[in-house]
């Protein structure tokens, strides 16, 4: 553990001296270190990748604030936590912003299903074309009648991630149905 930390600190010192190879190695190791930390806290792989990129850029911008005389990991985790909080704040405020939208779309979809112009089969067909996870969520919520919370419990995701996935699926479906 200490050896590993010392290695990070040594790489950073070399990087600060202009050694690009050491810097590449440091960023690769840091990326490996942070990936599980982010994956535990975020539901989607693409979110993890996006945030990891943001964190690496932040490390690059803030690398002068590390002097090599203190452990590297607390420094890098402080940056990672900061960016993660930023990301989650933006994510939840976005969700709040779209909360009305979401219920509107759900209502529209539900009313559309009962109208004769759009058959259940046509929607069901489109649902099957969605990515597996989104399709499962919609099936469970709209065919089997589970709530978002129940779906989250059944498939081992958190509730907000289920709602986000459903929201994305509704967007795709709405586009398809409008075509």
């Amino acid at each position: 553990m200490t050896d590993n930390s010392d290695n990070f600190a040594a790489l950073m010192k070399q990087a600060q001296a202009g050694d690009q190879r050491a810097y590449t190695e440091l960023l690769q190791e840091t990326s490996r270190l942070l990936r599980p930390f982010l994956a535990k806290r975020l539901s989607f792989t693409n979110e993890v990748d996006d945030l990891l990129q943001e964190i690496l850029i932040s490390i690059h911008k803030a690398r002068h604030t590390y002097d090599g005389n203190r452990p590297y990991k607390p420094w890098v985790y402080a940056i990672a936590r900061f960016r993660l909080q930023d990301h989650l704040r933006a994510h939840y405020s976005d969700q709040l912003h779209h909360a009305d939208d979401l219920s509107e779309i759900e209502e529209t979809l539900q009313s559309d299903v009962t109208e004769s112009a759009i058959s259940y089969e046509s929607i069901s067909g489109e649902v099957e074309k969605l990515p597996e996870k989104q399709a499962t969520i919609l099936r469970m919520m709209h065919q089997e009648g589970y709530t978002a919370r129940e779906v989250a419990e059944k498939i081992g995701m958190n509730e907000s991630a289920v709602k986000v996935a459903a929201h994305r699926a509704y967007k795709v479906l709405r586009k398809k149905l409008e075509e």
Partner: peptide, 16 residues
């Protein structure tokens, strides 16, 4: 790709 790009930008800097 990003790591390569950042490493290329990683000129010598003086710690604060």
């Amino acid at each position: 790709k990003l790591i390569d790009k950042l490493a290329q930008d990683g000129t010598a800097i003086k710690p604060a």
